[in-house]
């Protein structure tokens, strides 16, 4: 990352989806967005459900990221996520069904409640980002 570019790698369990060099990028963290410029200090973070913006030569490439992690090392920014897709590929009806299902989970234990929150956040983010 020392040559003034950010090396961004997006990996899903199926394959390496993206492997690009860019000027900077914005990551959707669990609690808000986080920008990465060349030379950022090493970091491991949890991703939320939101948009990954890759900026390169004045252009912005936007992807939807479905949770996961990011690891920033000296060499690269590695984004690990279950799913990565373009914004128009988000299936709104499926997300609404997921939301209903998540609402039906009874939070009887701390774990179940965490699971419920997580599913709710995922479904709501999808609905929000697909509507615009």
């Amino acid at each position: 990352m020392s040559d003034g570019a950010v090396h961004c790698v997006v990996v899903t369990p199926e394959k390496t989806e993206l492997d690009v060099r860019c000027d900077s990028l914005i990551l959707p963290m669990y609690d808000g967005e986080l920008g990465v410029y060349p030379g950022r200090a090493p970091m491991v973070g949890r991703l939320g459900f939101g948009l990954l913006k890759i900026k390169s030569a004045g252009k912005e490439d936007v992807w939807f990221v479905d949770g996961g992690f990011v690891q920033v090392t000296r060499e690269a920014v590695q984004v690990l996520t279950d799913r990565v897709m373009r914004r128009d590929q988000i299936d709104r009806t499926a997300a609404e069904a997921d939301l209903q299902k998540a609402l039906e989970i009874k939070p009887t234990s701390p774990e179940a409640s965490a699971l419920r929150d997580r599913s709710l956040a995922a479904a709501r983010a999808k609905i929000r980002l697909s509507s615009r």
Binding site: P13, M29, Y30, D31, L34, A41, P42, M43, V44, G45, R46, G67, G68, F69, T73, R74, L80, D82, A114
Partner: peptide, 24 residues
């Protein structure tokens, strides 16, 4: 040795890593 910054915390990340690696 890289000193990593953990966001939110190491434990918080672990909470996600385990299910993710189970799925994988």
């Amino acid at each position: 040795r890289d000193d990593y910054e953990f966001l939110p915390s190491a434990a918080g990340i672990l909470e996600e890593v385990v299910p993710a690696s189970f799925r994988a």
